[in-house]
Design a protein around this nucleic acid. Sequence first.
DNA 1: CAGCGGATGTGCT
DNA 2: GCACATCCGCTGG
Length: 199
Amino acid sequence: MAKLSREFFAQPTPQVARELLGRVLVRRLPDGTELRARIVETEAYRGAEDTASHASRGMTKRNAVMFGPPGYAYVYLIYGRYHCLNVVTEPEGVAGAVLIRAAEPLTGLDRMRTLRPVRRPVDLTNGPGKLCQALAVDRSLNGTDCVAGHVLWIEAGSPVDDSAVERLPRVGIDYADERDRTALWRFVIRGNQWVSKRT
DNA sequence: CAGCGGATGTGCT
DNA sequence: GCACATCCGCTGG
């Protein structure tokens, strides 16, 4: 299955977020094991004009990757315990990234359950922090090239039809301006079991 | 089941 | 010092 290209990620962020639904996120572990999961929930974060975005106040040490070339991983620590995985969008110099919030495990489930012990498989990857734990994604992968690299990438998978796409406000951004709190920049596959619980 | 608060590191959102 | 693009365990109904 073909990897998504640099040009794909260079598009406007909300468009990339919508187009990532149904695509396959792949994580290759140091021992060669490949973990695969189908993306079912994303959020778009833009630059200076988006007060919900880490990039809204300009470039810092943490968010620098968001300003770089598209197709790279932006991974940050949240609440001191969890990680969130984004893929950088827009042309180089324009900040933007898509947060991958939830996915449906496809291969390597046994390994995911070792990384993240849970009773029910549905709890493996139905949230951004859970997804990172199950796929062994942490800050050491910040800045990883998801187009030319061989550690983390996204395959074409099966794009989702418009009729199956639900657009919702983003979650966990109470601090943002009303305009940004209400923007429909969260994309989910309608009715999918693996979508995160926070709605 | 819902609701609430603790965990725990980093940037000032 | 406080807030945070989160998750989990404990409590009460």
